[in-house]
Nucleic acid binder design. Sequence first.
DNA 1: ATACGATTTTTTTTT
DNA 2: AAAATCGTAT
Length: 655
Amino acid sequence: MIAYERELNPEQYRVVTEKGGPLLVLAGAGSGKTRTLTYRVARLLEDGVPPERILLATFTNKAARSMLCRVESLVGRGAGNILGGTFHSIAHRLLRSYASRLDYSHRFSIVDTEDARQIIRQAMDDLHIDASLSKFPKNTILAEIISLAVNTESTLEDVLESRYPFFLHLSPEIHSIARRYAQKKKELQVMDFDDLLANGRRLLREHPDVLQTLSQRFQYVLVDEYQDTNVLQAEMVDLIASGHRNLMVVGDDSQSIYSFRGADFKNILRFPERYPDCKIFKLETNYRSTPEILHLANLSIHQNENQFPKALKAVRGRGTRPILVSAQNVLRQADFVAQRIAELARAGVAFGDMAVLYRAHYHSMEVQMEMVRRDIPFDIRSGIRFFEQAHVKDVTSYMRVLVRPDDELAWRRLMMMYPKIGKITFEKIWARLSRQENPLEALLSESFLKTAPKPAQAGLEKCRKTLLLLLSLEAADRTPGKIIDLLLNQGGYRTHLQDTYSDATGREEDLMQLGNFSTRFETMDEFLNELALLTNMSKEEDIEERQADRVILSTIHQAKGLEWSYVFIIGCADGMIPLQRALREPGGEEEERRLFYVAVTRAKDQLYLSYPVLDYSRSAGTLTLSSSRFVDEISPLSPQDEQRPFEQWALFDDV
DNA sequence: ATACGATTTTTTTTT
DNA sequence: AAAATCGTAT
């Protein structure tokens, strides 16, 4: 038995022991939100609720894994039957079982952002819309527009009007592209990320028997990071919880930072309206940060209008005041950060206890270079997602055609790696190939080769050889690891890597890692299907990574939920945070302030805010920047002010 | 006509 | 650093 009363504070204890019904938990930063949630699940299990009747929706796969892990160690037995994961992965699992209900093959596959953009580009080609001629939005932007319309459940016009007014006059064309895109996805039997949610909800909405089964099954539904849900996700949750109405949502409206992908923190603000009988709990005791850091955080977030009133209460003793550093330029800023990190390290602080946070990846360029120069070990929570890198997509496209010979996107990628096969030649080859019962077998036949355009034949022959090589593997041996090995050593892919990239060795190592990673999956099919939903090779799980003592460089978004003793927020200039571009969005300033709040509340002991006074950009030349409005609006009136939230330092070269 | 290499631009955040 | 675009070679 767990000694709940001793291990939890009274706020948390009340939440954990509350019986059932709709519950809204407003959990401030560092208030033990995850702890509360895991103890609650443990408590349910101890009360005899079967694990398979609990649904736990989280924001990232990592959060789900670590939470279930903690639950298991609490109750001392497997909690593996709990359905836990991101909304996308939960929807994915439902759709695998019920795909036929929505007129999809149960073998549908998932396309990632890049694939989706490709399909949209094809849709534009089909409609003879040339993006380069007029000032027509590029496929990337179109993908965003279409996605946002789905996720906010609004019309394309609404999205255009609020976020892209300068494209409003093109709405008929954009509509036809969207329609064509949907049609193509259907033909290819693929779903994009948004389809997973939209179809997941459709399944529950339109198939009462499915809803009946699922809503009866899930006796308890728990949702983490509720402030970041969008309309589709919120409704899915409502539907699934409709059977037993034991719905607990946990979140912090002040940390809602994902509106760019449709998240609507009105879901959390209006939860009490949707569930008038709900009970509201607040967790406001902060165990993480010093009172000085919390003072700054509270001052900042109080500038926002739309929120539940709240204030974090510190339990820790006094620390040092945060410091605002104005540096002459980005190089000086980088120099300061690296210098300070080196000093702290010499004073005995572990590298792993320090982090540098920023609004956008490119803000960190100079810091990265300076860290390399000084030999400071660091890890970038990189912007480029592992599974989206070119070499990973290259090798997985071979796997894809083996599993699904009609996978056009995979074929396209695969063939275009060979010489003399570009966009047009591929179209020609595919026009013939796709008519065949099994494109893979057709390609392997000698006779097919002759029908291909002359210049491409040599490349195609190589392609054929490589595929034959892969097919020569025994079915049981046809694993991702083995395929990668063959491609590198006999398929000529190693040469291709070396010819194409300067960092070929690093990429080769990535591929070995990918091979290792794939062994977690039972079948190659499963591996490929899950791939699109993964962002990173869960570094937390690798023991090596956990022990690695490195400074973390991360965007604020990716830092959510994490904490460090020493935190440097760089680029605290107006235009960087708040980011100029984000201010144009409706509600942009408040969202950016929440982002700032998230960044500030990551720090446990010491917080440094820094900004460059001069910045250089190719388009605008040299610019003078001023400190962020988020800093200015809480600035002390005088340096003697006892309540001042930060000290000020200035770093300029001697003149 | 097509591929491919050189050149230019362009960066928010993520499932 | 990667993608989009442009110009040239085949």
